[in-house]
């Protein structure tokens, strides 16, 4: 589905990604682990087209992707739930969700079907639909951010730290939702600081350190790796 090859990217003169290669196959949950500043968010922004790529290539369903504008990428099926949720605070929950479908050109009916699906996945959103999104709690905002990204009808969902700042029971709820999405056939690239939780639902994992992939494997292999256990799982 997605293949990233030798991607480098810089902020001004400082190179943040030094030749990253990874791939995400159809129907997988792949997780990116790593400390703050390892380049996880930068990589997601490169994939979404928010952060410019310096060299390397990105293919999505076999077609080169790296020179397309961000809004074109969304229309092609890559949707991102950004770090810190970034909901449209002054707009209502319903408007946030409706805007999620901005790039779609299919029927209103299909969009309504997806809206119903999002409301089934996150029943709380339905009750709050006329509230300004800024007044929601952190957990509700996270659900809204995921719901909004789903409204774009993505094939690949990029999730950046969906559990950040949430109470433990909410973390479980969000992770269960991610798993349900996978069961529905969605492909997911998940960035998480909470390595234990991420590895529990992921098929494969990559470990990023200062802009390089230092380790990759199945979730089981990564979980068993002594370096990972020490650095990210605190065992």
């Amino acid at each position: 589905m997605l293949s990233v090859e030798n991607v480098t990217s810089s902020y001004g003169r400082v190179e943040a990604l030094h030749g990253i290669s990874l791939h995400v196959d159809d129907g997988e949950i792949v997780t990116l682990l790593g400390a703050n500043g390892a380049g996880k968010t930068t990589l997601l922004h490169v994939i979404s087209g928010i952060q410019p790529i310096t060299s390397g290539s990105i293919r999505f369903q076999g077609t080169p992707f790296e020179r397309l504008a961000a809004h074109v990428r969304v229309a092609l099926g890559i949707s991102q739930v950004p770090e810190g949720r970034q909901i449209f605070a002054p707009l209502s929950v319903a408007d946030n969700l409706r805007l999620g479908a901005w790039s779609r050109t299919d029927d209103d009916e299909d969009i309504a079907t997806d809206l119903a699906r999002v409301c089934t996945l996150f029943p709380a959103l339905k009750a709050l639909s006329e509230m300004p999104a800024g007044a929601l709690s952190g957990g509700q905002q996270q659900m809204l951010a995921i719901g909004r990204a789903l409204m774009a009808g993505p094939r690949l969902l990029l999730l950046d730290e969906p559990s950040m700042g949430l109470a433990p029971n909410l973390v479980d709820q969000v992770l269960a939702a991610i798993r349900a999405l996978k069961d529905d056939g969605l492909t997911i690239l998940l960035v998480e600081q909470n390595a234990r939780a991420a590895l529990a639902i992921a098929d494969r994992a990559y470990v990023l350190e200062t802009g390089r992939v230092t380790l990759e494997g199945t979730a089981k292999q990564i979980q068993a790796d002594s370096r990972v256990r020490e650095a990210y799982l605190g065992v």
Partner: peptide, 23 residues
């Protein structure tokens, strides 16, 4: 209008607006 809401959304959070496909 949805376009009007897209303007409000862009004003409120440009990054998120780009990420949902607003040019």
């Amino acid at each position: 209008t949805l376009l009007g809401k897209a303007v409000t959304a862009t004003a409120a959070n440009r990054l998120a607006a780009r990420l949902i496909g607003i040019n």
